[in-house]
């Protein structure tokens, strides 16, 4: 079936099987491999993208179900060479080592900050409770989100 999905503001059209998962649609067709394909069971959170502004585990959505919705991936965070504050926060606070969970963490916490610009540590930990990081122990990720909250003026795009 022919599927058209708006990904990062551009319409991507492809003839796919109904069983094609969103994560593969994103990675295969426009080649946006920033979205990571992890556990495949909606547990790890590496594949999180935003659908209409809400975080979504893209391994557990059919591409066909996303037609007519706006998908935003990690590639959309940086604009004209300027990092989103949440990306800058991960850099400043060393919130990653291997980086596998990072795209999902970024899209999850970007959505958190859009809804709640000044989250507490508990709110941050709740928001990322569906994302697994085996490197950092989460402490630096929490610090990075706080950094982004405190440096939101650096934001240049939405």
């Amino acid at each position: 079936m022919n599927i058209s999905i708006n990904i990062n503001g551009e319409t991507v059209t492809r003839d796919v099987e109904p069983r094609t998962l969103l994560v593969h649609f994103i990675r295969d067709t426009p080649g946006l491999t920033g979205t990571h394909w992890g556990c495949d069971t909606s547990n790890c959170g590496a594949c999180v993208v935003q659908m209409d502004g809400q975080p979504l585990k893209s391994c557990t959505a059919l591409a066909a179900m996303c037609e007519g919705h706006e998908i935003r991936t990690v590639e959309a965070l940086e604009v004209d060479g300027k990092l989103d504050p949440i990306q800058q926060g991960f850099h400043e606070k060393h919130a990653l080592q291997c980086g596998f969970c990072t795209p999902g963490m970024l899209m999850t916490t970007r959505a958190l900050l859009d809804e709640n610009p000044d989250p507490t540590e508990a709110e941050i930990r709740m928001a990322i409770s569906g994302s697994i990081c085996r490197c950092t122990g989460y402490q630096n990720i929490v610090a990075a989100v706080r950094w982004a909250a405190e440096n939101a003026e650096a934001e240049v795009q939405s």
């Binding site: 999180v48 975080p55 979504l56 585990k57 557990t60 999850t108 409770s129 569906g130």
Partner: peptide
């Protein structure tokens, strides 16, 4: 129930 991202759906 599950986690906040799953709860969105």
């Amino acid at each position: 129930i599950a986690d906040p991202v799953v709860r969105n759906r």
